[in-house]
C-alpha cells in the first residue's frame, strides 16, 4: 500500500507517516501543500490513499481534492481530509468534492486507523472498520 501525506506542518506529516507505517503502508510520499502534491503525482507517485490538510499555502486541500478528481488516473486515490476545519458546511463541501473520509484535528491515533480501515486499508491482523463505512463518501 502507498500513501501521500499533504500537510504544511512537518511535525504533522511526521505523525501521520508514523501511523501509516503502523498499518502497513510501505511507501509514503510527503508534500507541504496541494501544488507539491500535484507535482509529486505528475512525477509518477501512485498512492492508494492521500491524507490531505485543508489550510495550506499555494494550493489548499479542497483545491487539491478537486484536482485529484479532475484527472481520470487519480480518481482511484482514496482521500481522507485531516484538518482543523470542523464546520459541518466545510465537511459537506469536502465530501461533495470527492473526499471519502474526514478526520478533525486534534485526533487520536486510533481514530485515523479506524478511518483507514473504513476505506479498506489496515494491517493484516487488525479488525475491520465500521459496518456502514464501506459506503464511503458521496460518490
Amino acid at each position: 500500500m502507498k500513501a501521500l501525506v499533504v500537510d504544511d506542518s512537518r511535525a504533522m506529516r511526521s505523525i501521520l507517516s508514523r501511523i501509516l507505517r503502523k498499518v502497513g503502508v510501505e511507501e509514503i510520499n510527503e508534500a507541504a501543500d496541494g501544488s507539491q502534491a500535484v507535482a509529486c503525482l505528475e512525477a509518477g507517485a501512485s498512492p492508494d490513499v492521500a491524507l490531505v490538510d485543508w489550510n495550506m499555502p499555494v494550493m489548499n486541500g479542497l483545491e487539491l481534492v478537486n484536482a485529484l478528481r479532475s484527472r481520470k488516473e487519480w480518481r482511484r486515490i482514496a482521500i481522507v481530509m485531516v484538518t482543523t476545519e470542523s464546520d459541518q458546511s466545510q465537511m459537506v463541501r469536502a465530501l461533495a468534492a470527492g473526499a471519502h473520509e474526514y478526520l478533525i484535528k486534534p485526533f487520536d491515533e486510533g481514530s485515523l486507523i479506524q478511518k483507514l480501515a473504513m476505506l479498506g486499508f489496515q494491517a493484516p491482523s487488525a479488525a475491520t472498520g465500521p459496518a456502514l463505512a464501506a459506503q464511503g463518501g458521496s460518490h
Binding site: 464546520d87 459541518q88 465530501l95 471519502h100 478526520l103 486534534p106 479506524q114 465500521p130 456502514l132
Partner: peptide, 22 residues
C-alpha cells in the same frame, strides 16, 4: 470532535448530526 472522530463515517456524521458550537 474527538468523539465523532472515533468510528463515525463522515457521510453519516453530516447526515445524522448537527454542529452546535464545538
Amino acid at each position: 470532535n474527538l468523539e465523532v472522530n472515533r468510528g463515525m463515517p463522515a457521510n453519516l456524521l453530516v447526515r445524522y448530526f448537527e454542529k452546535e458550537g464545538a
